[in-house]
Design a protein around this nucleic acid. Sequence first.
DNA 1: TTGTACTGTAACAAAAAATATTACAGATGA
DNA 2: TCATCTGTAATATTTTTTGTTACAGTACAA
Lengths: 135, 135
Amino acid sequence: MNSRFPVSLHILTLLHDAKGQVMSSEYLAGSININPVLVRKEIMNLRKHGFVDSKEGKGGGSFLAKNAADINLGEVYTAVKSDHILGQHKKDPNPKCPIGRQINQHLTDLYTQAEQALIENLSKQTLADFALNFN
Amino acid sequence: MNSRFPVSLHILTLLHDAKGQVMSSEYLAGSININPVLVRKEIMNLRKHGFVDSKEGKGGGSFLAKNAADINLGEVYTAVKSDHILGQHKKDPNPKCPIGRQINQHLTDLYTQAEQALIENLSKQTLADFALNFN
DNA sequence: TTGTACTGTAACAAAAAATATTACAGATGA
DNA sequence: TCATCTGTAATATTTTTTGTTACAGTACAA
């Protein structure tokens, strides 16, 4: 499992905390303790989804593009996730086995509904709620 | 993300389908299309949790140790999961940053409740229900 | 108009995690 | 007593994730 979700949430929390001030990838990376290039990549994704925006050039950096109360954690999760939460299944089970032949379809169905429950739970909380935890 | 959950579920489904007959790790591995040693390791874990049992020696193999209707998928997930579903967070964010200093605790809290929702959803379905999908 | 400090992005390297392989002792049945 | 399994360790390979280096392009500011 990669750490894109926690990294994204960390970035968003920092940007929220910055109250509109632009933050450099260098600074964000310093708080998270990862490479600035990874931060910039993650920010590209967050931008693509409309959560943040950024300014190039001297004095540039990034900032929240919408109100923290309008970003829910289910959306953040969705924006970040790539493969199935329950573990990617083998692409090529044995087609000669009646179970092997059908398992991927049924796993996909199972994952889809389980993931939906996860997302619904995360969606109950906004970035603003989450940031409220910090003092 | 490893594929322990789908592998475990695949094994359990095959054993259920076998209706009590012992199945060799070789056969199971053949349906899943992975290495038999991995199957045996996964079976050790499923055994430890009381889902299956196995017989050594010639003609040996494994079989379900309880009724499929008494194994729910939430339990299977719990038996198999190692790290956090939402991605493990960095162990060492910057302690000098007020956000970095506290984020891990809050991520853990968030994960715990989100994972709970996932498990509750999975628990609605038993192995018997899942196996019913196959024909 | 030139230097400085950023972003965006690609290409490559290193580290970590997952999976596969080999090997073999011990159990069990025929 | 042979053949066929499990259980398990040790090691190798592959894949995924993360880090690093590099540099073009943008914007501000002296």
